[in-house]
Design a protein around this nucleic acid. Structure first.
Lengths: 128, 128
DNA sequence: CAGGATGGTTTGTATTACGAACCATGTCAA
DNA sequence: TTGACATGGTTCGTAATACAAACCATCCTG
């Protein structure tokens, strides 16, 4: 099997995963990016810049993103006492609860995909 | 290895793939969606609705998308003679050329990823 | 302590996306 | 056959996402 074919399968599968995430997110009024933010903040808090870097977004993009999530009661901001320029972001209980609910769904929906995941299946059969 | 861990790896990898595609696309002034359209139309023409369904987008979204790509000379529209309601979309030579260039890059950038693709590596080592 | 670096926000603009309303063309049934 | 409904696209209005540039506050360093 050619590398190109593996890459193509990888890309197709990634789009499929994104589609699933987008759909599940939409059912809870969450964009793909918001979903990601919830995923990242599930087990830790982070400063704005850190979050932006992790997501590959401009910090200005994150301001609006966090604004909306904060207004919705999912996230909260807090000035970092050690460096008062820094703004830490973290999830509210409502945010955590929503994230948990969504991620249970994501796992449930994607689990079946694994069985027919082309790349895995092919490589599994004929390992390098 | 738990299914949850595989799903998590799948999601992380998918985001990584999307990041790469987004970056390469941006270098050519193409959004992720435009990239996908080019990918789909590489070997065939398609009607608007068909394309929208395939991408999971509303048909109204596609109008604007195709508008911009057409204005840029990458895509062209044509009324379908068999059913004059239908609009077929296809790539111009310029579009094909760009698509080819971009997809070469994509393959080149993603090929290395395959070697360290967690899901594969893990399943490869310990097949179901 | 002055000047530069860093962290965030604000503002302006483009793109993406949706839904509703709309027009043109097809199709079907009375 | 023609009236009513269905289908395919576009347009319009609105919201979210994203970037870049300008800006303010705070920190750090020579």
């Amino acid at each position: 099997m050619s590398t190109d074919a593996v890459v193509d399968a990888l890309v197709r599968t990634s789009f499929e995963v994104m589609g699933t995430l987008t759909r599940i997110g939409a059912e809870h009024d969450l964009s793909l990016t918001q979903l990601r933010v919830l995923g990242i903040l599930r087990d830790r808090r982070a400063r704005m810049t850190e979050l932006a870097a992790y997501l590959g977004l401009d910090k200005s993009t994150l301001s609006g993103l966090v604004d909306r999530a904060e207004k919705r009661g999912l996230l909260a901001r807090e000035k970092n006492p050690d460096d008062r320029r820094v703004v830490d972001v973290f999830m509210t209980p409502a945010g955590s609860e929503l994230a948990d609910r969504v991620y249970v769904e994501v796992r449930r929906e994607l689990a079946p995909l694994i069985d027919q995941f082309e790349v895995i299946r092919l490589l599994d059969r004929d390992p390098r």
